[in-house]
Simulated scan of single mutants.
Amino acid sequence: MDNNTFKIYTTTDLLPENWNEVAIENEFLQKNYLSVLEKSAPVNMQCFYIGIFEKNELIGVALAQFLDLNKLTSFGERDKCLKTTIRNFIFRNFASHVLFIGNNMITGQNGYSFSKEMDFACISKIMNDCANELKDYFAKQGKKIHIVSFKDFYEKCAKELKKHEFKNYHEFNIQPNMIFNLQNRWKSFDEYINSFTKKYRDQYKRARKKFDSVIVKELTITDVESENDRIYNLYYHVAKNAPFNTFFLSKNHFETFKKQCDNRFKIYGYYFENKLVGFHTILVNGKVLETYFLGYDETVQKDKMLYLNMLYNMTQFGIENNFEKILFGRTAMEIKSSIGAEPIYMSGFIYHTNKLINKYIDKLFDRLEPKVAWQQRHPFK
Rank of each mutant, 00 (worst) to 15 (best):
D119P: 03
K381W: 07
I350V: 13
C47I: 03
N173G: 12
N245S: 14
K140S: 10
Y312D: 00
K144C: 12
L294A: 11
M346S: 04
I147K: 01
E273P: 05
N263C: 12
K156G: 04
P343N: 08
F272D: 05
E165L: 07
K363I: 15
I350R: 00
D136V: 06
Q141A: 10
R230E: 10
A139S: 13
V224P: 00
A41G: 12
G102N: 00
T11D: 05
N32Y: 03
E255R: 05
Q175H: 10
C130I: 15
T84S: 10
K325E: 13
L289R: 08
F180H: 14
Q175W: 12
K240D: 09
K240E: 14
S195C: 10
D190I: 08
T222F: 10
Y192F: 08
G348T: 05
V288E: 15
E38N: 02
T246D: 12
K144H: 10
F272L: 13
S149N: 12
W186M: 10
F180S: 05
T5C: 09
N241C: 01
E155Y: 08
D119R: 06
G329R: 04
L14Y: 13
K31C: 11
V216F: 06
K363D: 11
W186S: 06
L356A: 13
P370K: 06
L308M: 09
A95R: 00
Q109T: 11
F272E: 02
T12R: 04
K31M: 07
I24F: 12
N128T: 15
L368I: 13
A64I: 03
L29N: 04
L249D: 01
L308F: 05
M333W: 03
I8G: 04
R264P: 00
T315H: 13
G51M: 07
L356S: 12
F138S: 02
E218S: 13
K199W: 02
F257L: 07
E320N: 14
F248H: 10
F100R: 01
L364W: 12
F365L: 06
G51S: 11
Y232R: 05
F365G: 02
K151M: 10
N194C: 11
T220F: 04
E342G: 00
K210T: 01
K135L: 02
I90L: 15
V284K: 14
Y49N: 01
H146L: 05
D229G: 03
G76C: 02
C261F: 10
K217E: 10
Y154G: 06
V61Y: 09
N274A: 03
M105C: 04
F180M: 14
K266G: 03
E298M: 08
S113A: 15
R87T: 08
D262V: 12
M178W: 05
N70W: 07
S338H: 09
A242Y: 09
F272V: 02
R377M: 11
G60W: 02
I221V: 15
